Simulated assay, not measured.
Amino acid sequence: MRYFAAATTAFLIATTPPAFADRGSNLPSANSQPAAATEAPETQAAPITIPEQLITNLQRDFGLTRSQAAGITGNLAHESGNFRMLAEIDGGCYGYSQWCGPRKSRFRSYAARVGGQESFQANYGYLHYELKSEYGAMMRRIRATDDVSQVARIFMKTYLRPRASTANLQRRVRFSEMYLAYRFDGAGCYSHFQLEASNRPAACPEST
């Protein structure tokens, strides 16, 4: 517990802009990134998609199985159009998790200091922060099952909390099962990141 308290204090050092001076403990420091929140080199032998890297990071940083990490990542794929559409089409939400309202404001304030709101660094870094700081009970429930559809349901209902009209659990599960089967076709690219338009990461180039 002593280590956890020290790590939490370091993680939440108030390097926040003035708008967050009264809630510094609710915004992660730009200097407290998870290890794999850094950008990939531009030159990479085989392209790596965003969901592939997310699954890798979630397994390592949270001690998850591949099924558990895929259940989370499939949810984020539904929210972000397979990591190709970061801005909500008919609304104001943004990012892999489609953060809205105060969460979006905090994400954007954080992203401005760690790579920009379109970057993997910012999106994974803020997801990592929220899961570590506010969703410990949910993560324990996720670790208790290796059923990818159950993980998808838990994450959707507890972390994302979508409107009933946009929930579409079946599509979230389909993405999760695709990723579990190593099928990442058409997903936004991590290793060769570029934008095809504003807020729209491009797919990976075809391997030669």
Score class of each variant (00 low, 15 high):
T65V: 07
D90W: 11
F62K: 00
K132G: 07
Y135W: 12
A69Y: 10
I89C: 13
C100M: 09
Y126D: 11
L180F: 07
V173Y: 04
A5E: 01
Q98H: 03
K104V: 13
A14C: 06
G74P: 06
F193Y: 09
R200M: 13
S198F: 07
G95F: 09
Q53K: 07
F107S: 04
R143W: 08
A7H: 00
A21W: 09
Q194A: 15
T208R: 07
G115Y: 04
Y179E: 05
D147T: 04
G186H: 01
Y3A: 11
T158R: 00
H192E: 11
H128Y: 05
S105L: 14
R172F: 05
S149M: 03
A19Y: 04
I50E: 03
E42Y: 04
T43C: 15
Y190S: 07
N82K: 11
S105I: 10
A137I: 08
V114I: 13
Y94K: 02
Y3Q: 01
Y94Q: 03
E52Y: 03
G95K: 02
G24Q: 06
E79V: 08
Q170S: 15
S25I: 10
A87I: 04
L180M: 12
G63L: 11
G125M: 00
R153G: 10
Y126K: 09
M85R: 14
V114G: 07
F83N: 02
G24S: 13
R153Y: 09
A10W: 01
D61A: 13
E39I: 15
A203S: 13
Q33E: 02
A202K: 02
M178N: 10
R2P: 03
S119H: 05
M139Q: 14
F83C: 11
W99T: 09
I89V: 14
T16I: 11
S207K: 05
T56S: 14
S149E: 09
E206L: 14
T73Q: 11
A45C: 13
R108M: 15
G91P: 14
F83L: 13
T65L: 08
A144L: 03
N168F: 15
K104H: 13
S119C: 12
A6S: 12
F11N: 04
Y124P: 05
P17Q: 08
Y110S: 09
G91C: 06
H78E: 12
K104S: 15
T56H: 08
S119M: 11
A36W: 00
A187P: 02
H192Y: 06
Q117W: 02
E196P: 02
C204F: 06
P47G: 04
A144S: 10
I55D: 10
T65S: 15
S109F: 13
C189V: 04
T208Y: 03
A137E: 10
R171G: 07
A111N: 05
R60N: 15
T208V: 12
A144I: 03
Q98V: 07
P205A: 09
F120H: 02
A21E: 03
G92D: 07
D22R: 06
G136L: 09
A69K: 04
K104Y: 12
T38S: 14
A5M: 10
S165M: 14
K157Q: 10
